[in-house]
């Protein structure tokens, strides 16, 4: 490939000069666009179906555009007053979980990233074991009960706060931050605590943003723990409320008397897909605020360079 003197059109990137760019860029952009189309089509279908009439859905006529507009699914989901309270609780659980898990994991991962840390190996093994072995639901349940965490946010926040997988990934990331930084700082007389807070963490904005996103989304989508530990129905998070709406709209079979029935005239798919949108929408809304930090690492690099 030869150096192109023609400035490629998107020349915004200050630090990269695009060599042999056109062919590569074209193929690359076509590839990514294709990926987007493949990803988006089913999703658009979900939206289209959530807004279509029951009749059109049954016919299989809905493809990517809603036919015979119908908001019944959304009316059922958002007409349920408990949903707003559930949004609030979910937000609280998510924020608490994110703060706890990100801080705890960072505290643990930093020492592990130090090559001659004396407890590195035993701690790594202890972490690794938890990835594969667990005591099962009943002992976990008894633990939460005996600690008196039943019905509290802590029952959802604490058990998953320190995870092996995340710790190892944080550690890899910290390692990726130049080795010499710690050594240089140590020579300058800085302690490890200072290095972590003043140097490593500011350099890890991208990491923190990423894992905050993971944590928020993880808590947002979880229902199992709340199902077990949150007995108070007024504190249920959003997923559990949506599950009950979906279940009851689909159908229910009862007992030996064995009466099965489908409720009302609303198509279950309307409700199911409206619920899906109700879950995803807030996440898509917060996403851009977090994404901003994904590029922050690069700017730090530029300053350093």
């Amino acid at each position: 490939m030869t150096k192109t003197t023609l400035p490629s059109k998107p020349v915004k990137a200050k630090n990269k000069i695009h060599i042999g760019g056109y062919a590569f860029d074209t193929v690359n952009i076509i590839f990514l666009t294709l990926c987007c189309v493949i990803v988006l089509m089913p999703f658009i279908r979900v939206i289209a179906i959530s807004l279509s009439s029951s009749r059109m859905i049954d016919r299989g006529a809905v493809s990517l555009w809603p036919l015979e507009f119908n908001f019944k699914g959304y009316e059922i989901v958002f007409g349920n007053v408990t949903i707003y309270r559930a949004y609030g609780w979910t937000l609280l659980y998510s924020v608490m979980f994110t703060v706890t898990t990100v801080s705890m994991t960072a505290c643990l991962a930093y020492p592990l990233s130090v090559n001659d840390f004396i407890l590195k190996k035993p701690i790594s093994v202890l972490l690794l074991i938890t990835m594969f072995f667990s005591g099962g639901t009943v002992p976990a349940y008894l633990l939460i009960k005996n600690l008196g965490l039943m019905n509290t946010a802590w029952a959802l926040v604490l058990p998953g706060a320190v995870g092996a997988w995340n710790t190892f990934l944080y550690r890899s990331f910290f390692k990726g931050i130049s080795h010499e930084i710690r050594e240089a700082a140590l020579i300058d007389g800085a302690g490890d605590l200072r290095i972590l807070i003043k140097i490593i963490l500011p350099l890890s904005k991208a990491l923190i943003a990423t894992f905050s996103l993971f944590a928020i989304v993880g808590m947002w989508n979880s229902y199992f723990a709340a199902m077990l530990y949150i007995k108070d129905s007024t504190r249920q998070p959003i997923q559990n409320i949506l599950r009950s709406i979906v279940y009851t709209s689909v159908s229910a079979t009862f007992g030996d008397a064995g009466m099965a029935m489908t409720q009302g005239t609303v198509n279950p798919l309307n409700v199911q897909y409206a619920c899906l949108i109700a879950t995803i929408a807030p996440l898509l809304f917060i996403y851009p605020f977090i994404q901003k930090y994904f590029e922050s690492g690069m700017q730090v690099g530029a300053v350093k360079g």
Binding site: M104, P111, L127, T130, P139, V162, L196
Partner: peptide, 22 residues
């Protein structure tokens, strides 16, 4: 460094190792 590990490891012991007898 050891001090940094204490709290997270405590959580790990209580919530991951605590129920492990199961």
């Amino acid at each position: 460094l050891v001090g940094l590990c204490v709290l997270p490891m405590a959580l790990l012991f209580v919530f991951s190792y605590g129920p492990m007898y199961g």
